[in-house]
């Protein structure tokens, strides 16, 4: 299998897209660190599902927005599996509001988890990846980070920031064979989107050429591609996984 022996840290892997990424990478042979913030039981379920298929995984609680917590996460990964070959920065939250009504803490929470979290996790693995002279970092941005979206100033700013961070990190680390790419999902069915009102979902469907929502697995397959040897000559790119919503 393509990722046999590799260790992958997937942040926010207890639910939704992160969970699908963890399962997909595991199905290709990778050993998985299933990070979560609060849902210990969900994370444990993911670990057990991987183990049931003969894979290796551990669940590790850590807040990606906190430096010490992230250090501890990566240390646990190293102590358990002995390398960190793949980092998937997936953990993310939304605190939607109109710009005019957005509170400082709504802004700060989203920037800290969705943007600073990517910075902290990336910084924490680069030392090990530089030593290995190999590594893959895949950041989960969002199509709204490319196109903008009314009511999500904080989230869009963070996700656009992730794309810029992806390009810069790719440039800084290319000489050490560390490849850094992003995926920008469109409208994917998870708990994050389940809560949206039906009329809003209908309106969004009209903007999707493929006329359906995406599945977490659609994102997971693309992440697995970037993590694999099939993507050896690709770095600094952002792949849209959005049913054709945004074409640029």
């Amino acid at each position: 299998m393509g990722l046999t022996g590799k260790c992958a840290v997937v942040t926010g892997a207890s639910r939704g897209i992160g969970r699908a990424i963890a399962l997909e990478l595991a199905s290709q042979g990778a050993k998985i660190v299933v990070n979560y913030s609060g849902s210990a039981q969900h994370a444990q379920n993911v670990v057990e599902e991987i183990q049931a298929h003969g894979g290796q995984a551990i669940a590790v609680q850590a807040n990606v927005a906190d430096t010490d917590s992230v250090q501890q996460l990566m240390k646990t990964a190293m102590d358990t599996f002995g390398s960190i070959d793949i980092l998937v920065n997936n953990a993310g939250i939304t605190r939607d509001n109109l710009l005019m009504r957005m509170k400082d803490d709504e802004w700060d929470d989203v920037i800290n988890t969705n943007l600073k979290g990517v910075f902290l996790c990336t910084k924490a693995v680069t030392r090990q990846m530089m030593k290995q002279r190999a590594g893959r970092i895949i950041n989960i941005s969002s199509i709204v980070g490319v196109a903008g979206n009314a009511g999500q100033a904080n989230y869009v700013a963070a996700k656009a920031g992730v794309i810029g961070l992806t390009k810069t990190t790719a440039q800084e680390l290319a000489s050490r064979n560390i490849l850094v790419n992003a995926v920008a999902p469109g409208f994917i069915t998870t708990e994050m989107t389940d809560g949206l009102p039906a009329d809003l979902k209908d309106a969004m469907l009209k903007q999707i050429p493929l006329a359906k929502l995406g599945q977490p697995e659609d994102v997971a397959k693309a992440v697995a591609f970037f993590a694999s040897n099939n993507a050896n000559y690709i770095t600094g790119q952002t792949l849209h996984i959005d049913g054709g919503m945004v074409m640029v």
Binding site: M130, L173, R176
Partner: peptide
């Protein structure tokens, strides 16, 4: 980057 690695 070499200097960073050297320090490491």
């Amino acid at each position: 980057l070499d200097v960073v690695e050297l320090v490491m």
